[in-house]
């Protein structure tokens, strides 16, 4: 079975800006794939390259084994859930959902029946007669999802679809999206700048920075074994240790990543540092330590004793928690 999406050395330049720079990418059929990165890292441009709104400056794109360059968006079996939902304001919800089938010439009764079924799938049964303007943000999001899924795309593209929702709704939608994806078996490609979202939802993640993919892997791999300092810092804001600091802590002279939650504060053993600040996060407390000019962040689980700022503490970690990333600067 071919890959759902294949990028071979794909670049997209806007003038002198290399939005996407020689990216190689393989999305497996049926997986939930996240493209994660800060804004301007090229992840959305990659999504638009798959959708067909952008054409690559160079390189080759395949969607299920078929060449995609030069194929306009309306001839690709790919649908998009837009960041601003892009519902048609002049059509009611049912006609919005039925739009794709209307364009393909499906009869009115049939397409409205399919639209209602799709609305049921996203838990909005009976909302067909309403106008998009009468819906809440979360409901519009669901309509946009139904409008894309009703066309049974081979790949569903989601551009920061949860960005505009409040926290509670976002967590609920994350669950639902994941359940929906598993039930339908459609390949989802999901763009987000929220590392928590990517970690909790995706089967695999590609981390983007400056138009390049820094690392591709399962959430576990990305989190536990970041290949670069950027990935270590961006995903889960790890402590990135310089080679000199790693050595002072008893490791080899290499860049290293030490997760804040892997550091333990104790009375004995390990190394000494001074507490410079603490902030209460609800389910944990974040401490900042200073060890002779080097800063470290520690996440203390709720319920543990919190040392006061200015106090001197000793800290240690399991040897396996220190992840080495080589000597390259």
């Amino acid at each position: 079975m071919p890959h759902a999406v294949t990028f071979q050395k794909v670049s997209r330049h806007f003038g002198s800006v290399r939005a996407v720079d020689a990216v190689d990418l393989e999305v497996e059929a049926g997986e939930f794939f996240a493209m994660l990165g800060p804004s301007g890292s090229g992840k959305t441009t990659c999504l638009r390259l798959i959708a067909g709104f952008e054409q690559p400056t160079s390189g080759h794109i395949e969607i299920f084994g078929e060449t995609a360059e030069g194929v306009p968006p309306y001839r690709r079996n790919v649908n998009t859930v837009f960041q601003d939902y892009a519902l048609f304001p002049h059509l009611n919800v049912a006609d919005n959902v039925a739009y794709g089938q209307m364009i393909r010439g499906v009869g009115k009764a049939e397409r409205l029946r399919d639209a209602e079924a799709a609305l049921e799938m996203v838990k909005l049964p009976g909302y067909g007669a309403r106008k998009p303007g009468e819906l809440s943000g979360g409901q519009r999001q669901r309509v946009a999802l139904a409008r894309a899924l009703v066309n049974k795309p081979k790949v569903l593209l989601l551009d920061e679809p949860l960005g505009a929702l409040d926290l509670k709704l976002r967590e609920q939608m994350q669950e639902e999206l994941k359940t929906l994806q598993k039930a339908l078996g459609i390949t989802f490609v999901f763009v987000t700048h929220d590392q928590g979202e990517a970690l909790s939802m995706a089967d695999r993640i590609a981390v983007f920075n400056h138009g390049k993919i820094m690392q591709t892997g399962t959430p576990e791999e990305i989190y536990r074994r970041p290949k670069t300092r950027f990935v270590a810092d961006f995903v889960g804001s790890s402590n990135v240790l310089s080679p000199a600091f790693t050595r002072r802590l008893g490791g080899p002279a290499e860049w290293a990543s030490l997760r804040p939650e892997d550091i333990r504060i104790g009375a004995e053993g390990g190394h000494e540092a001074r507490v410079t600040g603490s902030s209460f996060l609800g389910n944990a407390t974040r401490l900042t330590l200073d060890m002779a000019g080097e800063k470290l962040t520690v996440l203390l689980p709720a319920g543990s004793a919190v040392p006061a700022p200015g106090a001197s503490v000793r800290f240690s970690w399991e040897p396996s928690a220190l992840h080495l990333m080589g000597t390259e600067t």
Partner: peptide, 27 residues
């Protein structure tokens, strides 16, 4: 009429003429 409406229409299978007829003109 935001640009993404036009892109949404193309994404759902409408070519330029159909997009003009079904999305731009009504708006």
């Amino acid at each position: 009429v935001s640009g993404s409406l036009i892109e949404a229409s193309m994404d759902l299978g409408a070519d330029g003429f159909q997009t003009f007829r079904h999305v731009i003109l009504p708006n």
